[in-house]
Design a protein around this nucleic acid. Structure first.
Length: 578
DNA sequence: GCCGTTTTCGGCCCGACTGTTTTCAGTCG
């Protein structure tokens, strides 16, 4: 399944939360949290490490290393099992509701016996929270709002988890003898930010070996349905996966049909009907004779309908068919077009890996330029100072050109304050190669205030990129409210790029806002915001959002050659020479 | 539980915000 690191990370994180709920030493819990994060972000596979190797990971000492070794050996961690026996899983889930932490979760459990999100909703509706110390009318409101957010995302899984699962299934089924084609379809192929289930398609003459191999996969917990053409299973983590096996000469029509979206398919089928044709998952047919015309590839099906092949991220009925008919589909950006990253962290602030490791990993990924942009002092918890920043700059300059083909930029991620102010004065900012500015607090200001705040940041001469512009966290925090068209106009006017943050929990801007911003002529920076080496691999999901937003390489400054990028950055600061 | 040019004990990111209180606890980044 996913990397063992991920399983260990989740387990240690769970243990930390259980310790917090049961009121154990908060520092002990923090130690587990820290270790969980470090293991999640560690690029070595933990299952290949022994206790000694594990202890080399910062934050992992003897006790945690031993627990991990035992878990990897036996598949269980007794300390966690013990705590689980005391606190129902639902109580821990309560902490996923914004504004509910361990203390309030425990109060709800002990005082009211609430041990699930559903029970909490009932308790609020029955006004049973009113008498509880620490809870008032606003708490009720916030909790109901939080439950709504949680439930809205609850049944969908984030794109990266779905992709990892789909890759594993496709690899396994591709190895089954008789496999002609195998791919995932559905909203995952369209690169939606979350997916409800995973659809996998196989082209083969006989379906039985694939159904057999599919249901035997190690992470399959339940077989929901098993037939000749379709089998559905549920994984141990609760994700539904559908497998469909089609004859090789239906592959194109089937892939088209199962990729969707529904709205796109309806449009395509209407076009077929107008041409006296019928399109189904089995092929494109003459309505009258019933004779099959084409269906071997998607290209052939589209072509027979007078359309060029339409990339899956565009298939949302947002004008792609009209554009295709006019032969004006965008030449979509691909991951291969990306030359650089303008937003990354190191362990100087809240990143996990040292500068040298991040840079080496960027070089290995073939990037041509890479900006190190640790947090600035207004995010107080990061304890940044001018001296630390200047010392880091020395190290960045010394590392520059030590990896073949990779140039390093020294930047910072500024904090946009409630009035749009940023951390350092212009004379200090002038010496950075690039400044990203992002909102990290005051999410609840009203629309006008947020708009003014973002406009002020755009107007700043040394702010080049607005990081994670809406500040949404999938399933946790909604986008902040602002007059986005005003912000986009300001970005276009001032030459400020908007970030497409590739982290799967953010994916911010969203595809809809990318589309709107693009109409204003805004430029974009697809960045990873990497806090660890593995995070650099999330780039593909940012590219997915950019594709869904119809972006071409021309729209995205991180595809540009460095000289052109430098020109873009220089323009913002007038006559600044470099 | 982890860690160490303040090193084997005694710290541990720390300040701001929110909603609850009437001086603060809990949550968040």
């Amino acid at each position: 399944m996913a990397r063992p690191n991920e399983d260990v990370r989740a387990l240690l994180q769970e243990y930390a939360e259980l310790l917090l709920i049961t009121g154990k030493d908060a520092y002990k819990a923090r130690a587990y949290e820290k270790a969980a994060r470090a293991i999640g972000g560690c690029h070595a596979d933990v299952s290949t490490l022994d206790a000694k190797g594990l202890r080399e990971i910062p934050g992992v000492g003897k006790s945690i290393a031993d627990k991990v070794v035992e878990y990897l050996r036996t598949g269980s961690m007794p300390a966690v099992e013990e705590e689980r026996a005391r606190i129902p899983a639902g109580v821990r889930r309560l902490m996923e509701i914004p504004a509910l932490g361990p203390k309030k979760a425990l109060t709800l459990y002990e005082e009211l016996g609430v041990s699930s999100v559903g029970e909490l909703r009932e308790a609020v509706e029955q006004e049973r929270l009113r008498d509880l110390k620490g809870f008032g009318p606003r708490s009720e409101e916030n909790i109901l709002h939080g439950i709504g957010l949680l439930e809205a995302s609850g049944e969908r899984i984030p794109v990266h988890a779905a992709t990892e699962l789909a890759e594993e299934i496709v690899a396994a089924l591709s190895a089954v003898p008789g496999c002609v084609d195998c791919a995932w379809a559905g909203s995952l192929r369209r690169m939606r930010e979350t997916v409800g289930d995973v659809d996998v398609l196989v082209a083969a003459r006989r379906s039985e070996p694939f159904m057999e191999a599919f249901t035997a996969l190690p992470f399959v917990a339940e077989v929901i349905a098993r037939g000749e053409k379709k089998t559905s299973v549920r994984t141990a983590k609760g994700t539904q996966v559908d497998l469909r096996v089609v004859p090789p000469d239906s592959w194109g029509a089937a892939l088209l049909y199962f990729t969707g979206s529904k709205a796109h398919n309806i449009r395509i089928r209407e076009m077929a009907v107008r041409g006296k044709l019928k399109l189904s998952e089995y092929g494109l047919f003459h309505t009258e004779s019933g004779r099959k015309i084409v269906s071997r590839t998607e290209e052939k099906v589209y072509s027979r309908l007078g359309l060029p092949w339409i990339p899956p991220p565009l298939r949302e009925d947002r004008g792609e068919i009209a554009a295709g008919l006019r032969d004006e589909l965008p030449q979509l950006i691909t991951e291969r077009d990306i030359r650089g990253d303008l937003h990354t962290h190191t362990d100087l602030t809240d990143g996990l890996a040292p500068l040298e490791d991040m840079v080496a990993a960027a070089a290995e990924r073939g990037l041509r330029y890479y900006a190190v942009t640790d947090h600035a002092p207004d995010l107080h918890m990061q304890r940044m100072t001018r001296d630390k920043m200047l010392a880091q700059r020395e190290r960045v300059r010394a590392l520059d050109r030590t990896h073949r083909g990779l140039r390093l930029l020294h930047g910072t991620e500024l904090n946009i304050g409630p009035d749009g102010e940023v951390d350092w004065p212009p004379e200090f900012l002038a010496d950075f190669d690039v400044c990203v500015a992002s909102v990290h607090s005051h999410f609840g200001l009203d629309r006008d205030a947020q708009t003014r705040r973002l406009l002020a940041a755009c107007e700043h001469p040394y702010v080049h990129v607005i990081g994670h512009p809406t500040t949404r966290i999938l399933g946790k925090r909604q986008s902040m409210d602002a007059d986005w068209d005003a912000v986009f106009a300001a970005c276009a006017r001032t030459g400020t790029a908007l970030e497409v943050n590739a982290h799967p929990n953010r994916l911010d801007l969203t595809d809809e806002l990318v589309l709107r911003a693009r109409d204003h002529g805004v430029k974009f920076a697809v960045d990873t915001d990497a806090h660890s080496v593995p995070d650099l691999g999330y780039l593909r999901y940012g590219v997915g959002v950019a594709q869904r937003g119809w972006l071409t390489p021309e729209d995205v400054i991180t595809t540009w050659p460095l000289t052109r990028l430098r020109h873009f950055l220089r323009k913002r600061a007038g006559t600044r020479a470099r």
